[in-house]
Amino acid sequence: MGFFEQYRVLLRKDLTREFRSKEMLSSMGIYALLVLVVYGAALSQTSKGLDILQMSGGLIWALIVFTSMLGLNRSFAFEKEQGCLEGILLAPIDRSTIFLSKATSNCLFLLVVELITVPLFAFFFLGGVTLAPSWPLIVFPLLLGSIGIAGVGTLLSTITLETRGKDVLLAVLFVPLLFPLVYACVAATTGCMVGSEGFMTTYLRSLLLAGGYDIIMLSLSWALYDFVISA
């Protein structure tokens, strides 16, 4: 049985399971909503003249980073609970296939959550401002950011799976390692939402850097995954 077939089987299992239990999506969704509520309080004392648009890129990414951690923590916990991970490891399957399928499902779930929360963010906070006409370009930084988060996050959540205090530990490793990616994505997102003079240079260069981060860190995670999952 080829790589692609196994990849499909693993991915379909994750999707079916999530569709059945809605465990990750619902917890991530509710958490994201709560972060938005906190944003509401945090921004309540700012003056009307505050240029919310300049901050919105950063606020969106703060929301995504914290929400994704919640999902990543869950993504392997259920594999471990009934020993299912061992069941998968006992099958004649390449370990990197497990990484790729898990990263894909994590990325898909994250994108679904973004699909709901980003418009919700706009609804709550961007009602009074006019977005630059280039705002639909926000899709690409969101996509590249989610891919990187899912890839590195999958490796890290496998590492923290069997540690004491795994929720905190994931955050401790995840946030600094993802920092460069978030930095680039914030620049690209803000760039296309504000759309000031010559924003395209910033936007494209940030996207290129985010893409470079994704390629390097994903290849590295993919290469190191065998060691991690077999340990």
């Binding site: 299992k13 079916t16 399971r17 059945r20 239990s21 465990e23 259920f78 609970e81 009934q82 020993g83 299912c84 061992e86 069941g87 006992l90």
Partner: peptide
């Protein structure tokens, strides 16, 4: 391989 953990997904 059979262990005391069933290795089955409860939701499926």
């Amino acid at each position: 391989f059979i262990s005391h953990a069933p290795m089955l997904y409860p939701a499926l």
